[in-house]
């Protein structure tokens, strides 16, 4: 059915797309394959893409290493990610609901202020005073301090997502519940919250990816003892602390370990990821 010109066009599209996909996938395959090479091969293995001899040694070394205590760092990452995701999801759901359905004094003010925050970047000048507050709470040098900061954080994109989702739900639901004697928060708890599941999935996944991958703030908050940080911040610390040359095997094995959870979540939930991104950024 297609004309010759049309056929060429389709072929060109496939070609360009193939180049794009190779560009995207190459570094990921490189990381995974190289993590099975020996340290010398990783540093100066020449043009061989695949290892001379496949070996799990790097993973075993990383698992038992003292400088880079993978077991402990994984546990820290899980602790940090789970709590941050839980808190931010709960807070943004409530805030999104309040902004969608509440009619209270100061609604426009707070909404405007929170939105404006998205565009403020003080380039790190705010980190030191934040650390001083955390020190006053006796939470210095731990991820718990950062979790407190995140608990009180304002997730504008999440609030937008939930707000627009709640606004799309029929108002009759609320009204019926109100007639039955439900309070404003009662309506949220009994009626709205159970309906939020699809958008909560988006918020949770974006939050999971964000906090699992974050390295700057966890590193700053645990600068006194990097083993108290997350897996990703530990990787960054190990690379920048000058131990990189001798530890490439641990670094690559650690990178693969650190990437597996986000990759699994993404492969299963990419629909929610992309929904959240597009709704939050372009329409919001």
């Amino acid at each position: 059915m297609h004309s010759l010109f049309e056929k060429i066009k389709i072929a060109v599209m496939y070609l360009v797309l193939a180049i794009g996909l190779v560009f995207v996938l190459f570094p990921i395959f490189y990381m995974v394959v190289s993590s099975f090479k020996s340290n010398i091969e990783i540093m100066a293995g020449g043009a061989n893409f695949f290892p001379v001899k496949w070996s799990m040694d790097n993973y075993i070394t990383a698992w038992n290493s003292d400088v880079f205590n993978v077991k402990r760092l994984i546990w820290n990452s899980i602790y940090y990610t789970v709590l941050v995701v839980l808190f931010t999801a709960a807070n943004s759901c409530i805030a999104g609901y309040v902004f969608a359905r509440g009619r209270f004094k100061g609604k426009k003010l707070w909404f405007g202020v929170f939105t404006a925050l998205m565009f403020v970047n003080f380039g790190g000048a705010n980190i030191l005073p934040t650390l001083q507050i955390i020190a006053k709470l006796h939470l210095s040098g731990s991820l718990s301090g950062l979790i407190v900061v995140k608990f009180f954080g304002i997730n504008v994109v999440n609030i937008y997502l939930v707000k627009s989702f709640v606004s799309s739900l029929p108002k009759e639901l609320d009204e019926a519940a109100m007639i039955d004697g439900c309070s404003f928060f009662g309506i949220f708890r009994r009626i709205i919250a159970p309906l939020l599941l699809p958008i909560v999935a988006t918020v949770v996944m974006l939050g999971f990816q964000g906090s699992w991958n974050e390295y700057l703030m966890p590193m700053v908050f645990t600068a006194s003892d990097p083993l108290k940080g997350t897996l990703v911040s530990g990787l960054f610390y190990l690379k920048s602390s000058g131990g990189a040359a001798t530890n490439w095997n641990i670094l690559l094995a650690g990178s693969v370990i650190a990437s597996i959870p986000v990759l699994i979540v993404y492969l299963y939930g990419n629909k929610y990821f992309i929904q959240g991104l597009t709704a939050g950024a372009v329409k919001g």
Binding site: P27, I42, F236, V262
Partner: peptide
């Protein structure tokens, strides 16, 4: 392909930096 094109964005910047440092060393 759409799903794959977005894949790099999922991976931590710390890991990206590591891998590219190694590739371009």
């Amino acid at each position: 392909s759409r799903v794959i094109l977005y894949l790099p964005t999922i991976i931590s910047v710390a890991v990206v930096g590591l891998v590219f440092t190694n590739m371009f060393s």
